[in-house]
């Protein structure tokens, strides 16, 4: 449930009990709201929106670090759009995101559901083991050795089982698959699912059991519907995060072989290293546009929680609630 729907929910519960606010109370209420919001808005403007807006403007210039800046129009965008490696990098990013979501998104959900079914003591131990705060960089470096074709653990297992030597990360056909696989052991999102499940009243399950519901039935009719808003939010985050993937391919393959694992953000980084700031910014904005498009499609295609109450604007809330 999103914050504003929660607020709307609470407000709806109080509707009717409160008289309409007078104009002076409403103004005072608005002023209070802005005073509380001001620090967050200010920080966001200074550290978030201003640099981002500046970056957008920079993409239309030659963006030198020192000296005068010259407006160059769409030159950087033209250069990026006509660069064959940009298309390749976007392709890699999209395939990586799709693979990652298909192969790793469901696992933490299943793990969370299964953990809930375990005895409390066992659950705590399993949580400790599975949800250890693993360093992503450290894990990537560890997996680099696991995948080593000469002396890696996986190669030993493969040859020990009688298979031919495997290329793992050295193959441009397989590299993205192997880069995604370590995501299976990073259960960070599982904690969020677990917290959601723990907030489901046990009476729901007890009632279901009285009605004769089995394990799968309870998951299908109680657990998953209650987790739905969180799953959708995590899916959105997963799409956004995976389309901006950088550190794993950077640490494990440096984008190779043959650029088969060079993501869009890695290419931005490469271009930045060549002091081509306008090009890097233009490419970042193209990536931003792609992510916005994907998110917009997802928001359009996936319905919100049908049980959620209708949304209300802040103005509406303020006007209706008065200074209560």
């Amino acid at each position: 449930m999103t914050t504003d729907t929660a607020v709307a929910d609470a407000t709806a519960a109080e509707d009717g009990a409160q008289p309409p606010a007078t104009p002076s109370r409403s103004r005072r209420r608005r002023r209070q709201l802005w005073i509380f919001l001001a620090p967050a808005v200010l920080l966001n403007l200074v550290w978030g929106w201003y640099p981002l807006a500046t970056s957008f403007v920079l993409s239309f210039t030659d963006a030198r670090l020192r000296g005068d800046v010259t407006f160059t129009g769409f030159e950087s965008y033209e250069r990026m759009i006509n660069d064959p490696l940009v298309a390749q990098a976007f392709r890699v990013s999209i395939i990586f995101a799709v693979l990652s979501i298909v192969l790793t998104f469901v696992v933490p959900i299943l793990v969370a559901i299964l953990l809930m079914e375990m005895p409390r003591r066992t659950m705590r131990w399993m949580m400790l083991l599975w949800f250890l705060p693993l360093s992503s960089v450290g894990t990537a470096i560890l997996w680099r050795y696991v995948y080593n074709t000469d002396y890696g653990l996986l190669q030993s297992i493969a040859t020990g089982l009688g298979f031919d030597r495997q290329p793992f990360l050295n193959s441009s056909d397989q590299v993205l698959f192997w880069l995604v696989i370590p995501g299976l052991v990073l259960y960070g999102p599982g904690l969020i699912y677990l917290a959601t499940l723990q907030s489901v009243p046990t009476s729901y399950y007890e009632a279901a059991e009285i009605e004769g519901a089995g394990f799968w039935r309870k998951i299908w009719t109680i657990s998953l519907p209650r987790m739905r808003p969180v799953i959708l939010m995590m899916l959105m985050f997963a799409v956004i995060g995976n389309l901006q993937q950088f550190e794993w391919p950077m640490l494990m393959t440096d984008g190779g072989p043959g650029g088969a694992s060079r993501t869009a953000v890695m290419y931005v980084y490469d271009i930045l290293n060549q002091l081509r700031y306008a090009d890097a910014t233009a490419l970042s904005i193209l990536l931003f546009a792609l992510i916005m498009l994907v998110v917009a499609v997802m928001r359009f295609a996936i319905r919100e929680d049908p049980d959620a109450p209708p949304r209300r604007s802040l103005r509406e809330l303020v006007t209706r609630k008065g200074d209560h």
């Binding site: 807006a53 500046t54 403007v57 020192r66 910014t281 990536l287 931003f288």
Partner: peptide, 23 residues
């Protein structure tokens, strides 16, 4: 340039450090 860019509330991503460039 910085004045002009400050006036634009358009979201982008990328080079943040450049904002502090001097001439």
């Amino acid at each position: 340039f910085l004045r002009a860019s400050a006036a634009l509330g358009i979201v982008g991503t990328g080079v943040v450090g450049l904002a502090a460039c001097s001439a």
